[in-house]
Amino acid sequence: MTRPYAEVIGDPIVQSKSPAIHGYWIAGLGLDAEYRAAHVTSSGLEDYLASRRADADWRGCNVTMPHKQAVIPLLDRLDPLAAKIGAVNTIIREKDGSLTGYNTDAGGFLEPLRPILAREHLFRMARVLGTGGAARAIIAALAQEHVVIVLAGRDPAKARALLDELDPQGEHHVAPLAHFAEPTDFEFDDRAGCFDLVVNASPLGMAGQPPLEFDFSHVPPGSVVYDIVTHPVDTPLLQAARAAGFRTVDGLSMLIGQAAEAFEKFFGVAPLRQDGDTELRKRLTGA
């Protein structure tokens, strides 16, 4: 007897936390379903999707590196947000066998910020560090929330091109990444009624990667510091931010948030999250 299933695909795939997340929610709901990991290479991507189209039990898949852009020409349609971002992290098999691409990274990124963004602000600004694939969804998400972005990268020209592509009407700014590594004596104005955010959207600070050089003199009072790195979860940036008195958001928040959005698309029901993901977080971190 077969049962519905979804997957995560990538190359490599062994590091993915998605099976643990979705498996936890499937068990919690008592669903007769599965969530698997599939190692799919770039050369095997087209054949993989062709075979899954014909499988009525396959609900879809999450897409990790390096396939988030490569899958787009192989799909039948794109959700407008995925089309704007130019990357797909969730594919859904429709009942007729057609494939629709979504991007749940943007919603997952915003989820822990929703209570703050629901308030009215005089001004919203985010300093986003990094211009890689992850930054695309984050820029699009912040632009939708009327946040002025300062995008910092090693190549300011690339940063400007990214902003012009994703939010051409926005009044955003660019800066070299090294700018934030050096102390500043800039005096911030009154931030009452403002929303300020610092996001590490780069792999810097991840295990095996160089550290993120960042000086907290660039952070306005009352800012939220958000690091999307998940290994380690408690990064040096977050530790330093807490020590300096700032609110923090870790990478598991985005990871779990984007997974929840995908889970509902796969299985037609929202995951159980009444405990604020406490138990799931323990399982993911081994705490």
Score class of each variant (00 low, 15 high):
A126Y: 14
N89A: 12
E182Q: 15
W58S: 15
G86C: 05
T131G: 04
D32G: 09
F266V: 05
D79S: 05
R124N: 00
R154A: 04
H67E: 03
P220L: 02
P19A: 05
D55C: 02
S16F: 08
D196Y: 13
G251I: 07
L255N: 12
I9L: 10
P73V: 09
V71G: 13
A140N: 13
L151N: 07
A244S: 12
A50E: 09
L31E: 11
C194S: 13
A70K: 12
D196Q: 12
W58N: 11
D47K: 01
K68F: 07
E261F: 15
R273S: 01
C194A: 08
V150F: 10
P176G: 15
S16I: 09
G257R: 12
V14Y: 08
V225K: 02
D47C: 05
D250A: 01
D234P: 00
K84E: 14
P236Q: 09
G23P: 07
V148M: 11
N62W: 00
V174R: 00
P271V: 04
P211F: 00
H179E: 15
A135N: 14
E7G: 06
F266L: 01
L117Y: 10
F180W: 15
V14M: 04
A262K: 10
R273K: 10
Q69M: 14
F109I: 03
S18M: 00
R77L: 08
D190M: 00
A259D: 10
F263R: 06
L151I: 00
H22A: 10
V150A: 11
T104F: 00
L151S: 03
D105Y: 06
L129A: 03
